[in-house]
Structures are given as structure tokens and as C-alpha cells.
């Protein structure tokens, strides 16, 4: 139990001369919900991509439950239990919404866990139900609104039954009402339980978000990135009162 869920040790990633992620280290406990914030271009998305294997770090190590993730394929990492959503949603536009989620349900991890589920359709349907878009299951994904695409991203990610869920701006582009709904879903997911044929142990989460007010209500702890480096780390209260963070967000001499 003492072993942390995720240990990130001095990962680096540059694009040309730009250090997008600069020597970042942090760790996460089981079931912890971690907020990841920082100004635009701070390297948040890049950091998540390093964790899921979409990008390879230039150096550093990422250990998930004691296993090194650096060097593994994306699908291997997902099947170990790390799932992510895309900030700029990437649905399979010409496929029905349910088929979008079925792809996740067909991954070895999800497929193996739900052997008692007769049909992947049913499991996919329950993931959609959880995300609140089951009524549109048979529509093509191209008809979905921004908010519903975010929901689809979440449905797809939880269908692979993750132990660590990485959400990249789950509230991005959502109306206040939609944001509340999404926040509720995230809390419900974190509590865990059975959603139809979908079983959630209550995954740990890293949530990247600009809507800080909403984020503060969900997370246990926050880390702040600025220009690719870790600026601060602490409880939501500590972080919002940290002068360095205020400066990073508002600029020098901000009021």
C-alpha cells in the first residue's frame, strides 16, 4: 500500500529549442485526484502525453505501480491501466457514437475484465450512459456538440477501465451548466461503484483545467506548471495563495 501509484522523475521534453517540459518530478498516491494547472503553453498537455506514451521524453522516468512506462507503446500503457482524453477531441467521426466506445471496450484490458458481459455493445452502452450521451448512441460522432464530444472522450477513457485517468481540460468549451454536469460525473466516477455493466474502482486522476473554481472542488492536490517547470505543489488553498502562482497567472505587477 505504501507504494505510490505514479512516480514521475525528472522528465524532459523539448521541441526544437523549446523546453516544453523541463525536469518535472512528482508522485501520486492511489486514488488521489491531482489538478494540473498552468498558463497557456505551460506544457500541461505535453506532460500528459509523456505519461501515456504518445510522446517519448528526452530523459527521465515514469513509473506506474512500479513499472517503467517510458519506452512502452501507447496501447501497452493503456492496458496497464492509464487512460487519457484528448484536449482537442479526437472522435471517429464517421462511426456511430457507440462504435467509438466499443473500440475501447475491445482493448485486452477492458475485454478481459468483463468476460461475463456477453456483448461489448452493452458495456459500451453503459459507458455512454454514465457519460450521459446514451440517447445518441446510434448517431454519427460528427453530429456531437463540443460538450458532448467531451463526454464521448470521457466515456471512451473509462471504458478501458483505468486505474489512472488523465483528463485534459474536461470542462473546456462547456457552458456553466454542462461544466457542473461534467464535474458531477467526475466525482461520481471517482467514488467508484457499478454503472450498469461498467465497474469502477474509483480511478486516480490527473485533471488539467483552466476553470480553477470548478477544479478546486474536485481535486485533493494541485501542481502548477509554468514554462515547462514545476512551479508549486500543494492543496488547492496553498496553491491559490502562493505568490509565485499568482504572478505566473497574472504576470509581474498584476493586481
Amino acid at each position: 500500500m505504501a507504494e505510490p501509484l505514479l512516480v514521475v522523475e525528472s522528465v524532459n521534453k523539448s521541441f526544437g529549442g523549446l523546453k516544453a517540459v523541463n525536469d518535472v518530478s512528482f508522485r501520486m498516491e492511489q486514488k488521489e485526484v491531482l489538478g494540473l494547472i498552468g498558463p497557456n503553453g505551460a506544457g500541461k498537455t505535453t506532460l500528459l502525453r509523456l505519461l501515456t506514451g504518445i510522446l517519448k521524453p528526452d530523459s527521465g522516468s515514469v513509473k506506474f505501480k512500479g513499472k517503467e512506462l517510458v519506452g512502452r507503446n501507447i496501447w501497452n500503457i493503456v492496458n496497464l491501466g492509464v487512460a487519457c482524453t484528448f484536449q482537442n477531441m479526437r472522435p471517429f467521426r464517421r462511426l456511430p457514437i457507440i462504435a467509438n466506445v466499443m473500440v475501447s471496450c475491445l482493448s485486452p484490458r477492458s475485454h478481459g475484465k468483463g468476460e461475463w458481459v456477453k456483448k461489448v455493445e452493452n458495456k459500451a452502452m453503459d459507458a455512454l450512459e454514465f457519460a450521459g450521451i446514451s440517447d445518441m448512441a446510434l448517431e454519427k460522432a460528427s453530429v456531437l456538440s463540443q460538450g458532448d464530444l467531451k463526454r464521448l472522450e470521457v466515456a471512451r477513457a473509462i471504458a478501458s477501465d483505468p486505474e489512472l485517468l488523465l483528463l485534459d481540460e474536461p470542462f473546456g468549451g462547456l457552458s456553466p451548466a454542462e461544466t457542473d454536469l461534467m464535474a458531477k460525473s467526475i466525482r461520481r466516477l471517482h467514488k467508484g461503484g457499478r454503472f450498469g455493466r461498467l465497474h469502477s474502482e474509483g480511478p486516480a486522476m490527473i485533471i488539467v483545467e483552466h476553470k480553477l473554481q470548478q477544479l478546486m472542488k474536485i481535486v485533493d492536490r494541485i501542481i502548477v506548471l509554468n514554462f515547462g517547470t514545476l512551479l508549486a505543489e500543494g492543496t488547492p488553498d496553498e496553491v491559490v495563495n502562493n505568490p509565485q502562482v499568482i504572478e505566473a497567472y497574472l504576470g509581474k505587477g498584476g493586481d
Binding site: I74, P91, R94
Partner: peptide, 24 residues
């Protein structure tokens, strides 16, 4: 079949298929 769905999905967005845990 289910394999067909994965084929379709690879055409649409291969990275998203990988991120769904499928060995593309």
C-alpha cells in the same frame, strides 16, 4: 464484426485507436 469496427476506427484516427488500448 468487432474487427471491422477497429479497421474503420484506424482509418478515422489511428492515434485515438492506440489511446483506446488497441494494438494497431
Amino acid at each position: 464484426s468487432n474487427t471491422g469496427i477497429i479497421f474503420h476506427a484506424i482509418r478515422e484516427d489511428e492515434l485515438a485507436v492506440k489511446a483506446s488500448g488497441i494494438n494497431t
